[in-house]
Design a protein around this nucleic acid. Structure first.
Length: 676
RNA sequence: GGGCCCGUAGCUCAGCGGUCAGAGCAGGGGACUCAUAAUCCCUUGGUCGGAGGUUCGAUCCCUCCCGGGCCUACCA
């Protein structure tokens, strides 16, 4: 018997579940429910990912112990999942004895296979916070382009990659003190030793979508694989490496091992043999992940499993990101919607169906468009599917279903035959296709009811049998849809079972009509989406600083400060060295070939002109800029750039990306005036 | 610069070498009134991004170009 072990990526214990996460958990849950409905042995395993520097820092900020932090977050995650009908067979934590045990086991295998190497790594250390600093906890001036305030791994101004120790004037974002350089021995996994295996595993078979296999081939497998740094020196929230005291496994080492640990807990609880699930050719392992973590799941993870003698994934299903109204989720626009916020206003079934109607087997991003969301759910769910029951069940309540299935012109048979195509689509992850086929069957059923006009039959007592037959057909066609939709809409399936007196538990129920049973009192199966509630949800998701009343002082949260902590203190003299001037943009033009740059001509009064490149393309239209006043750094050394020499900078706030806000002086300021 | 994906009706997407290119929603007209202003019928709407090529025949295959997205590199 084919056994299936299915996982979703482990959500990080650093934040709450949002609608972007839900794409993955719903995609997986639908697949698992489908497999179970088909009678497959299928187990759905997940867990919280709990280790790493970010957890340690957050626990400190909230003045909690790490254990307390991750315990709280786990119960929040579990509650969110449950509310969305995401049904795990087991939900564990990477911070568990089971996961620790498997980390040790895999580690021992890596040691034994001589995969582990020790190398000295130079890292920045925050003496005040008493911790080594991960790259993104260090900021400083880019060694290449001298841009200030850049993270420790790369410069988002010039894109240069470097080590945090290369930063000029580095500052710890934890304590705002200058970190010191310290050396530490790190442990590395030499996965190049498994290069041949990875070539074969990624390129052969159907383990990966073709675009993923190509990506790996092009970016990683064409050259020797770099050693993977899997240890972090204390203090670190995680598991200490048994044969290397003072060192901890890096969070990405133990995170996927959480799949195994969590499975073991499930086995323990249900009296299953662990080896049947992770060391058996009878079990297919399926991972569902987002495209951002492709690298870990398609190179390191198979390498670890291979080295330690566990089963390899049969397939890694990779999905794209969620956008909302065509854009990245945004807190200020109210499209960064937490699962718990959604639930206050809307039925989870809506999102389950909507995502299902958009998901394919490709790793394309999917878009949540609220107008479409409302239209689609109302038209398909309420207007088509639920309406079928709604318009026939009432009439059938008096008589129940006929004892024999009446002539329906082949409709039931046709929809039963669709089952193969629908199942095939589910199996491949092409839920959008499955939904299309199901909705087409619903359309045909509604046509039937329309033609038979049971409301007319109901007026004539002599037609009672005929009426019962028509309702028997209508309700059976509806029930077929409920079976096909059961993976997506478990509640609808349950309600349908209650309505017709037989629970929906198997795909096969779509193939044979239900006859001779009573029909219970009909109750609404699903409410229409209320656009006002959607709007309310978006408003509730907006960060407070967007909700300013006309008179009141707006409340500003501290997101910006947290994202970019204050720089180290400077003296007045140091400040005075920077010569800021008011300037008028006298010309602005597009720079062909540049992704972010516009060419600006700044006037400082009289004939004083400056040619400045500004990274604001796509944010500001050149035509809108001409004539306005800005503030420029006037004594910045000229800088040669790809498209010409830049003679200064204009100042702007914003976190980069699309968020750029130019500074302007109040009216009355004159070009050339210095800013003091 | 390299890699991958995409560009089909107003919108979201099917189709993919072969009869007049489809669906849902939106738009227009009608019918019905059982049903959650649901449903049903009819209908408007596309030079299938552009240009070449292969072919008896291309939306579908090949090449180039344009446009969008993602990744990667580089330059700022």
């Amino acid at each position: 018997m084919r056994r299936l072990l299915v996982t979703s990526a482990l959500p990080y214990a650093n934040g709450h579940i949002h609608i972007g996460h839900l794409v993955e958990y719903l995609q997986t849950d639908i697949w698992v429910r489908f497999q179970k409905l088909r009678g497959r042995r299928c187990v759905y395993i997940c867990a919280d990912d709990t280790h790493g520097t970010a957890i340690m820092i957050r626990a400190r900020q909230e003045d909690l112990g790490e254990e307390e932090l991750i315990a709280r977050m786990k119960s929040a995650h579990v509650a969110d999942f449950k509310a969305f009908d995401i049904e795990f067979d087991h939900y564990g934590s990477t911070n568990s004895p089971a996961t620790r045990g498997f980390c040790g086991q895999i580690w021992a295998a890596l040691r034994k296979g001589d995969f582990i190497e020790e190398k000295e790594v130079t890292q920045l250390y925050d003496a005040q916070a008493g911790t080594f600093l991960a790259d993104r906890f260090v900021k400083g001036t880019c060694p290449k382009c001298k841009a200030p305030d850049q993270y420790g791994d790369s410069c988002d101004r010039c894109g240069a990659h470097y080590s945090p120790t290369d930063l000029i004037d580095p500052v710890s974002t934890l304590s705002n003190t200058a970190p010191e350089v310290r050396k530490a021995d790190h442990l590395f996994v030499n996965i190049e030793k498994l290069h041949g295996f990875l070539d074969e595993w990624t390129q052969g078979g159907e383990h990966l979508q073709p675009e993923v296999a190509n990506y790996l081939k092009g970016h990683f497998l064409g050259e020797p694989l770099r050693d993977w740094d899997v240890s972090r020196p204390a203090p670190y929230f995680g598991f200490e490496i048994p044969d290397s005291p003072g060192n901890y496994w890096y969070v990405w080492f133990d995170a996927p091992i959480g799949y195994i640990g969590s499975t073991a807990e499930w086995c323990e609880k249900h009296g299953e043999r662990f080896d049947d699930w992770w060391r058996s050719p009878e079990t297919e392992i399926h991972h569902f992940i987002g495209k951002d973590i492709t690298y870990f799941h398609t190179l390191f993870w198979p390498a670890m499993l291979k080295a330690a003698g566990f089963s390899l994934p049969e397939r890694v299903h990779i999905h794209g990101f969620l956008t909302v109204d065509g854009e990245k989720m945004s807190k200020s626009k109210g499209t960064f919607i937490l699962a718990s916020t959604y639930l206050k206003d809307l039925d989870p079934a809506y999102l389950r169906y909507y995502y299902a109607s958009k998901l394919t087997s490709r790793m394309d991003d999917i878009d949540l468009n609220f107008d479409e969301f409302i239209a689609k759910v109302n038209a398909d769910m309420v207007g088509n599917v639920v309406n079928l029951a709604s318009r026939t069940a009432r009439f059938a309540g008096r008589t129940g279903l006929s004892a024999e299935y009446p002539d329906d012109g082949g409709l039931f048979e046709k929809a039963a035959a669709d089952g193969g195509a629908i199942a095939g689509a589910y199996e491949k992850g092409d839920y959008a296709r499955a939904m299309r086929i199901i909705m087409a069957a619903g359309d045909r059923a509604n046509q039937y009811v329309e033609q038979q006009a049971p409301w007319n039959l109901a007026k004539d007592p002599a037609q009672a049998d005929r009426l019962r037959d028509v309702c028997t057909v209508g309700l059976n066609l509806f029930r077929q849809l409920a079976v096909y939709l059961a993976p997506v809409l478990p509640r609808l399936a349950r309600q349908t079972g209650e309505l017709l007196g037989e629970p929906i538990a198997s795909w096969d129920q779509s193939q044979k009509p239900l006859l001779g049973t009573a029909v219970n009192k009909f109750e609404h199966l699903m409410q229409r989406v209320d656009p006002k509630r959607v709007e309310a949800m978006v408003v509730a998701s907006r960060t407070p600083d967007e909700e300013e009343g006309p008179e009141s002082v707006p409340f500003d949260n501290d997101a910006a400060l947290l994202a970019e902590p204050l720089a180290a203190e400077i003296s007045f003299d140091e400040f005075a060295r920077v010569d800021l001037r008011v300037a008028r943009i006298v010309a602005a033009e597009d720079v062909p070939g540049a992704k972010k740059l516009l060419r600006l001509t700044l006037g400082l009064g009289g004939e004083n002109r400056r040619n400045v490149f500004a990274g604001i393309k796509g944010v500001y239209e050149p035509a809108d800029l001409v004539g306005r006043l800005v503030i420029c750094v006037a004594n910045l050394a000229p800088r040669k750039m790809k498209f010409g020499v830049s003679e200064g900078m204009i100042v702007a706030s914003g976190g980069g990306g699309g968020e750029v806000y130019l500074l302007s002086p109040d009216s009355g300021a004159k070009p050339g005036q210095r800013v003091h």
